[in-house]
Design a protein around this nucleic acid. Structure first.
Lengths: 118, 118
DNA sequence: TATTGTTATACTCTATAACTATA
DNA sequence: TATAGTTATAGAGTATAACAATA
């Protein structure tokens, strides 16, 4: 995680910021509160996080109703998110490459089991 | 890790404190600076951590030379550390029990590979 | 009455700098 | 000169409380 965080830092993003970008990318027009529930980030902490992304013009807030804002990536945001996803993919490949190919499937299945039963 | 941390919290220990207790248990008379290098804890953060353990009479500082202190568990410290080790063992068993027995060896070997090459 | 979003605030963890006493 | 330990402090990350606006 520390190494992945340093990859994000090279894009001037904290881990939570990079994750939120990927979530918006995969769920256009999702609201702040939905992201917060998904990632278990308190709404009090989502507010300044999204403000930072909006200030950097990576994300746009579009009113859904009077109190909710749908979030969407700007074109800059899309380009940064592409780099984020590449960083994640490279990171995963580097990790997996250390495990003998014959064991990868079993290993990933075991990891998924631990994750899902949490 | 969050779940293990809550097990430590039931013993009134932060994760770093529980880890330091186990390190002292396995290495009697180890010094603060050695523990710091082992666990990658800055000396500035070891000082208050050890002070807390000493104030609670879990650990004793015995001067080695004029500047180093060897650390040892008190009898209270030994009893708490026994509970810490039990908590870790139960935690590991709970995790491993979720993985089919036939895959455990492969899974642990893969984890060890990732860990050691870091 | 419940929910969305916001501000203010506090606590923990970690990192840096400056210092002392000793080797 | 380098090391052990300490103090003070600053920065993240995260948590709670209080609040306004809206459903």
């Amino acid at each position: 995680m520390a190494k992945l965080a340093s990859r994000f830092a090279a894009l001037d993003l904290r881990p939570a910021e990079a994750t939120v970008l990927m979530v918006i990318d995969a769920n256009p027009n999702i609201t702040q509160s939905e992201i917060g529930r998904m990632l278990d980030i308190a709404s009090a902490n989502m507010a300044p996080l999204v403000s930072r992304l909006a200030d950097r013009e990576l994300v746009e807030r579009q009113p859904v109703d009077g109190r909710s804002h749908g979030l969407a990536l700007t074109s800059t945001g899309r380009s940064v998110t592409t780099k984020v996803k590449k960083a994640v993919a490279i990171h995963e490949e580097e990790l997996l490459s250390k495990i003998p190919a014959s064991q990868r499937k079993t290993f990933l299945a075991a990891l998924r089991t631990l994750w899902s039963e949490e």
